[in-house]
Design a protein around this nucleic acid. Structure first.
Length: 689
DNA sequence: TCGTCCGGCGTTTTT
DNA sequence: CGCCGGACGA
């Protein structure tokens, strides 16, 4: 028997309302995950709802995993068996893997990421007249928006999105069609397609939608403020048979509109689902009250939001601080100096985060942290699978799985060097397009080339064919090891880089890749197929620390965390430095141009509400932008409340954080000796090379 | 087929 | 200022 007595009244109400539509408006730090997990446990344990009828959807793997673990904690493994806790994309993919043939794709389809998308668009642009005046990134964005609006290439020209006067629309009209055609030909789908095709499948086969809706009788959606219209359509399909939909979210934390998230989904929930019950969670268990008061004050300027006022039992006299800095180097110095003080007092570095609007702000902080020898970790950035070596190997695996995957095939055709160049490739592509046979088969058929050159191609096609068997007969990691050996990939890497260190790092990536395959096998046993592995790699999020895979957990947690405001959503830290609170940075220049200041304000709100006890905000008088110094102004988000007493402003210019001349001198000399130490280290690095 | 030089561009990015 | 991508030459 699960008791809900540990929840507060509102949380309990939310966890105990099971039938019909429910909207839980969960303010930052209000115990949303706790409420959701108790709700699930309550349904299974007390109400005896079969776990297989429950579906909970979140946005990230991390959130899904956390929810899974916490439900396990409440129910134990055996009783939580059968629950479906997924992300939108993993759910869609699960459905497509069974049903995609209804849409004319083969079951061994590949999944393409942003880079793959751009590669196709590049070629499309080459065929389009006046190619130079269009940027493929922009076209890609538009196509993404069209997909998320559910508009097909055929429909585009007649849609509201098409403007006959706009040359971009004409280019998009051509390219969208071209792009979708290629995907189909390569038997590939992109991230947006995962949702789009699932919805389309349900549109086309209502009886299928119905059967899924009957299976998932109780549905919960986390971070509902970030859903887009496709996800909404999917939810409508899945709830059609019962209307048992519980969504959780906070409109004040909607920060992904640039990815198509539609805040009206949460704002208009009651009109989309009549009879909905709305529960507000406003008690915050995370932050001390001065931080919440500031947060409330900042966000209340936004119009068109659901009124919420967070409150906390945690009282303190200490107000949030606002530090005025000279420039970005100074900003980093002062912040890191403050962190050093923390460390001296024995505070745990894992409780500290530096949050910023844009990745361009990282550099000075990284420098200062290194000089002061403070361990740190940067969240986000390059994903593991985006490293060149890993991508090469993934491309091999992709082709072995799906021979029609032309993009992957082209990536590896001459990697390592097989003496097959563009000329040869082009001939075969032409052949492939003319005969509507996939590129691999065209190469195997050997009709485009003279005998003499065909030899090199045969080596390649034989290799791939051979490895289809190798992967059938061996485990995943064995297969990959054999592949690396067979193509002499390590030797190839060593040749590519003259720096020993670089080659070493690349080699390491490869071994790490094989290791990750091993771990995958250990975890999934018989489920560790090539297909599942590739899927996991592509859908895995980038919220793991960069380059830190090998370290122990306790080492890892005693590090200062650096990340963007976007990445920080859902997390909390004892101490938060919210840096660069300047006009044109937060709010960002581009958002100002586009007139989306409300979202920037929410971003600021998210940053403030990450802090549990200590919040320090900073801005600079001057900042280097693309090489030149530019005068900066305090962000409107705090400037508006200047004299209101919600925070204390301190001038930290000219080493103002230190007392006497003596101290300043000492600080500077420490700073420079730190710098020299670094230079020496670099020199040593070079010697090793 | 590969390396080098020049020009343009520069936000966030759960999958 | 620094990175990336395209163009062009050896």
């Amino acid at each position: 028997m699960i008791t809900l007595s540990g929840l507060n009244d509102k949380q309990r109400e939310a966890a105990d309302t099971i039938e019909g539509p429910v909207l839980i408006l969960a303010g930052a730090g209000s115990g949303k995950t706790r409420t959701l997990t108790y709700r699930i446990a309550h349904m299974v344990d007390n109400l005896h709802i079969p776990s297989k009828n429950i579906l909970a959807v979140s946005f990230t793997n991390k959130a899904a995993k956390e929810m899974k673990e916490r439900v396990h904690g409440l129910l134990g493994r055996s009783r939580s068996k059968g629950l479906t806790l997924a992300t939108f994309h993993s759910l869609g993919l699960r459905i497509l893997k069974k049903e995609i043939e209804h849409l004319g794709y083969h079951k061994n389809f590949s999944i393409y990421d942003t880079n793959d998308q751009l590669a196709i668009l590049r070629e499309g642009l080459k065929r389009y007249h006046d190619e130079k005046s269009f940027k493929r990134e922009q076209i890609q964005t538009i196509i993404g928006k069209l997909k998320n609006a559910g508009i097909t290439p055929d429909e585009y020209a007649d849609s509201e999105f098409f403007d006959d006067e706009d040359p971009y629309c004409h280019a998009t009209n051509y390219l969208y069609d071209y792009y979708q055609d290629k995907l189909k030909f390569y038997n590939a789908i992109d991230f947006d397609d995962i949702l789009l095709l699932t919805v389309r499948l349900f549109d086309k086969k209502p009886e299928l939608a119905q059967s899924y809706s009957e299976k998932f009788k109780y549905i919960m959606i986390d971070e509902y403020q970030d859903t887009n219209s496709l996800q909404f359509d999917l939810i409508v399909h899945l709830t059609k048979m019962h209307n048992n939909l519980c969504v959780v979210g906070d409109d004040d934390q909607a920060i992904y509109s640039f990815r198509g998230a539609d805040i009206t989904n949460i704002l208009s929930f009651e009109s989309h689902f009549p009879g909905a019950k709305v529960v507000k969670l406003e008690q915050n268990y995370r932050s001390v009250s001065p931080i919440l008061e500031l947060a409330n004050e900042v966000i209340k300027e936004n119009k068109n939001r659901r009124e919420k006022t967070l409150w906390s039992n945690k009282k303190t006299d200490k107000k949030p601080l606002l530090w005025k800095m000279a420039d970005s180097d100074h900003e980093a110095q002062v912040v890191v100096e403050d962190i050093v003080q923390h460390q001296r007092k024995g505070k745990h570095l894992g409780d500290i985060a530096i949050l910023y609007r844009s990745n361009t702000q990282i550099l000075p902080f990284e420098e200062q942290l290194r000089i002061s020898q403070i361990p740190y970790t940067i969240i986000g950035g390059q994903k593991f699978y985006e490293k060149k070596e890993v991508k090469d190997l993934i491309a091999y695996l992709s082709v072995i799985k799906n021979k029609a995957d032309q993009l992957s095939l082209r990536r590896i055709l001459n990697v390592p060097n097989r003496g097959i160049g563009m000329k040869t490739l082009e001939k075969f592509i032409e052949e492939s397009e003319d005969t509507e046979v996939d590129l691999f088969s065209a190469m195997k058929n050997n009709s485009a080339l003279a005998e003499s050159r065909q030899g090199k191609i045969d080596v390649f096609t034989t290799l791939i064919t051979k490895f289809i068997d190798v992967f059938n007969e061996n485990t995943l990691s064995e297969g990959i090891s054999k592949l690396v050996e067979d193509i002499k990939y390590i030797e190839y890497i060593d040749k590519q880089y003259d720096s020993v260190k670089q080659a070493e790092r690349r080699r390491n990536d490869i071994f790490q890749f094989i290791d990750s395959a091993k771990r995958f096998e250990e975890f999934f046993k018989d489920g560790a197929t090539l297909t599942n592995f590739l899927e996991k790699l592509l859908l895995q999020d980038s919220q793991d620390p960069r380059d830190k895979e090998d370290e122990d957990d306790d080492v890892r947690t005693n590090e200062v965390t650096l990340m963007t405001l976007h990445s920080s959503k859902g997390l909390e830290f004892d101490t938060v430095y919210l840096v660069g609170l300047e006009e044109e940075l937060l709010p960002h220049k581009r958002s100002l141009q586009e007139g989306n200041v409300a979202e920037e304000r929410r971003l600021c709100y998210v940053g403030i509400t990450r802090a549990q006890r200590k919040l320090v905000m900073t801005y600079c008088k001057e900042r280097k932008i693309y090489g030149n110094n530019v005068t900066r102004h305090k962000s409107r988000f705090i400037n508006d409340l200047d004299k209101s007493g919600f925070f204390v402003e301190q001038d930290r210019e000219s080493f103002g954080h230190l007392g006497s001349e003596e101290e300043i001198k000492e600080y500077k000399s420490n700073f420079f000796s730190g710098l020299m130490g670094l230079l020496n280290e670099d020199a040593q690095d070079k010697e090793e090379d």
